[in-house]
Design a protein around this nucleic acid. Structure first.
Lengths: 196, 196
DNA sequence: ATAGCGTTTAACAATGTTGTTAATTGCAAA
DNA sequence: TTTGCAATTAACAACATTGTTAAACGCTAT
């Protein structure tokens, strides 16, 4: 792996764990074993380095969502697939939810750039199929259901640092925990849309 | 309000919005309009100032939970009351969830001190009444249900900065949003425990 | 071998951070 | 009114931060 790539990987770790403001390019460089000038040499500024990482993650998330949303099934299938896709996405980068929350709280200006495109995948479903979907959901609160899916997909990963560092879970216990949460989420969804 | 109290209030804001590491005692002092030496004069160190704030919040949260958990009703009542209590707690300090997440990710050592006491209110219910509760829940996953309640109670508040600063919600829209989320959570719970 | 070019370092500047300390202020009690 | 003490400031130390720049390094191609 080239130094350029090593810096990117180390930066990912650092930004994941500390957020933008509390991260230090000097520490990133140190963890790679080079002078901090290398960070500026390859990525100009801390901000550009951060945005590059954020960008690739958001692109990936959007791609996943678009794919799921395009499959036009009933509310049940769409919700379940969305839930599984989101959970899988976060499971690949377990600190990604932290990154998003940190950005939304401390640097919303970095997220404004995605505004339109964030709503776009959802629109496919919410506009094109919302009428049919509404019939399957008691109170017609389809967007609310999607937000519930979103929330229940990422909270397990927010809890990982606590479970690991405070409650003392082992890696295996963490994995079991995440699996339980996924199943509980899917069970809950079934109940929600399957009866009035 | 005394300067001592003003510093505490400003620190709350700053820690809420930036987390421990990204917060600066100098900025806190500046926002109050005093020299940063005052922070050290009244609170010794940044750490002690932070812990004082964290402590009072955790105490309050534990008190609320203890109160709810002590009322020995069925699973339905206990869950609903817990949900409402947690939502109300976070609604009073809307950045509190951020504070907890930040601490659990970047400073778990600050949370270890509460470890035993965090589980204590839950134990009241989960040990003393778990058998009876289990009968009301299909797969007997009572702890899972409580965690779902917890997750759905705080995520709306995590979303507020995004909705305000990226999506452009007004204060009123935020309040309406929070109300919707609360109701969706309660609806969802009803479905979950009311049928097999 | 050497000229050239991309890479890397060391050093610097400007700024910000936390915490301490000596000096000053201002009020209250004797 | 003057002594005394709490409150407040200004200045300082030690260090970390980001970003820039000139120099050195090391490899490749001529």
């Amino acid at each position: 792996m080239s130094i350029e790539d090593k810096i990117l990987a180390a930066a990912k770790e650092e930004f994941y764990r500390s957020g933008f403001d509390a991260s230090s390019t000097a520490k990133i460089a140190k963890s790679v074993g080079v002078t901090h000038a290398m960070v500026n040499y390859y990525y100009r500024t801390k901000e550009q380095l951060f945005l590059r990482i954020l960008d690739s993650h958001v692109e990936k998330a959007l791609a996943v969502l678009r794919k799921v949303m395009r499959e036009h099934g009933g509310i049940e299938k769409t919700l379940t697939k969305t839930a599984a896709a989101l959970f899988g996405l976060f499971n690949e980068d377990r600190y990604f939810p932290f990154l998003l929350l940190d950005a939304s709280r401390s640097h919303p200006e970095y997220l404004v750039r995605y505004r339109e495109r964030l709503y776009e995948p959802a629109k496919d479903v919410l506009d094109g199929h919302i009428e049919r979907l509404k019939e399957s959901v008691p109170d017609g609160n389809v967007t609310g259901l999607f937000e519930t899916v979103f929330s229940l997909s990422y909270t397990p990963f927010l809890h990982v640092p606590f479970l690991k560092n405070v409650a003392g879970y082992s890696e295996q216990q963490i994995d079991e925990y995440l699996q339980r949460r996924k199943e509980e989420m899917l069970t809950l969804l079934q109940k929600r849309y399957s009866n009035a």
